[in-house]
């Protein structure tokens, strides 16, 4: 049985690697972003992609949908977008069997009923519309005209937002940001990556990436991710990290006490562990390591830490806060750390 599980783990890691390779055919560079998207996909969480326009956010999501045998839908959020435009609505339609008086209401499902949903520039819609999406993200179900419709699994939302054009936008409130498992920052490509992008995208149009993973495989991966073992010291480490992000905590670093107004909460810790499990699974390991937690700390916590006025004034970013947390919170007990330090 262990042999089969070992094989399953290997297969999962191989599938993720195949998916990453397939995406890599289209997306040049941005391997960290791709990995984080993989973690979100495997763990069953939603991802908020933040980056300047033109960095390939939408392309990444579209490529992912092409590689997966899943139903893809895209919602371009605008200020006049209505919730019904997202979730769908009842419309009056003619009943073909009753021609004269035969009109009736039928559910017109919105784009939310896709399996991979791209919520492009989510911060441009009004909070009302945003909350319609967030409800679906949290509950994997929508209610249209009093009728609850369960969304088809796997349901994977990837939202994007533009951090520079803030005019006329509606920044997501903290409670809604908390719904996203990871917040992925899409960085500018390096010179080599940019050259590669230019070469590939300005020539002949390339063929679509292959579908490398079926819906069942994705569901299997998500189930397997929950089975990944995690030792108590690692769990405690995740808990200590989360608690240390709270400025009222006794062992919070100085930068947290000064620059943070609210830290991560329980959902943040859950995201941390779940994403770490995904990391382990993606790497084919049956257990979570400290390193896995540290890898996912920034994407899992950066949108859950609310800076204080002093922190914003000082220009302290949430990533700097998380760096300080990682440096301040030890992974192992002090005696083990001291021993390893002495040997080093």
């Amino acid at each position: 049985m262990s042999q089969s599980h070992d094989a399953v783990l290997s297969q999962a890691a191989g599938a993720v690697a195949s998916l990453r390779d397939a995406i890599g055919h289209v997306i040049i560079g941005q391997s960290a972003v791709v990995d984080q998207v993989m973690w979100g996909l495997v763990s069953g969480g939603h991802i908020l992609l933040e980056g300047a326009p033109g960095l390939g956010k939408t392309l990444l999501v579209r490529t992912l949908s092409q590689c997966l045998d899943l139903k893809f839908s895209r919602i371009q959020f605008t200020p006049d977008l209505m919730p019904s435009d997202v979730v769908g609505t009842n419309v009056l339609v003619m009943d073909p069997t009753q021609r004269a008086a035969g009109s009736m209401f039928a559910v017109q499902k919105g784009p939310i009923f896709g399996q991979i949903v791209l919520a492009d520039e989510i911060n441009r819609a009004t909070p009302k519309t945003q909350s319609a999406l967030l409800e679906a993200m949290a509950e994997h179900a929508v209610t249209i005209a009093g009728t609850r419709h369960v969304l088809e699994e796997p349901f994977f939302v990837l939202a994007t937002e533009n951090p520079i054009e803030m005019e006329g936008t509606y920044p997501l409130p903290e409670a809604q940001l908390d719904r996203f498992l990871l917040k992925v920052i899409v960085p500018q490509p390096s010179e080599d990556e940019l050259c590669d992008v230019l070469t590939r995208t300005t020539g002949r149009e390339q063929s679509a990436p292959p579908r490398v993973m079926s819906r069942e495989s994705v569901l299997q991966l998500r189930a397997l991710c929950r089975d990944v073992a995690i030792a108590e010291p690692v769990v405690r480490y995740a808990a200590r990290l989360t608690r240390a992000s709270d400025p009222s905590a006794k062992d919070a670093p100085e930068v947290v006490k000064k620059g943070v107004r609210y830290g991560a909460a329980v959902r943040g810790a859950q995201s941390l562990v779940l994403a770490a499990k995904a990391v382990a699974l993606c790497e084919g390991r049956p257990n979570v390591s400290f390193n896995d937690v540290q890898k996912v700390a920034k994407p899992a916590l950066r949108h859950r830490i609310i800076r204080s006025f002093e922190g914003e004034a000082d220009g302290v970013t949430t990533d700097q806060v998380i760096d300080a947390l990682l440096a301040a919170v030890p992974t192992r007990p002090p005696q083990v750390s001291a021993e390893q330090k002495a040997q080093a």
């Binding site: 073992a229 030792a231 049956p286």
Partner: peptide
């Protein structure tokens, strides 16, 4: 990658981890 620490924990009789995954961890 904390496989030993996880295995020590999973080796405890009270652990309710999936036996298959537990076996893989111990093997690792």
């Amino acid at each position: 990658d904390e496989a030993i620490a996880t295995a020590v924990e999973l080796d405890a009789p009270s652990d309710d981890t999936d036996p298959a995954m537990r076996a893989v961890v111990l093997q690792s």
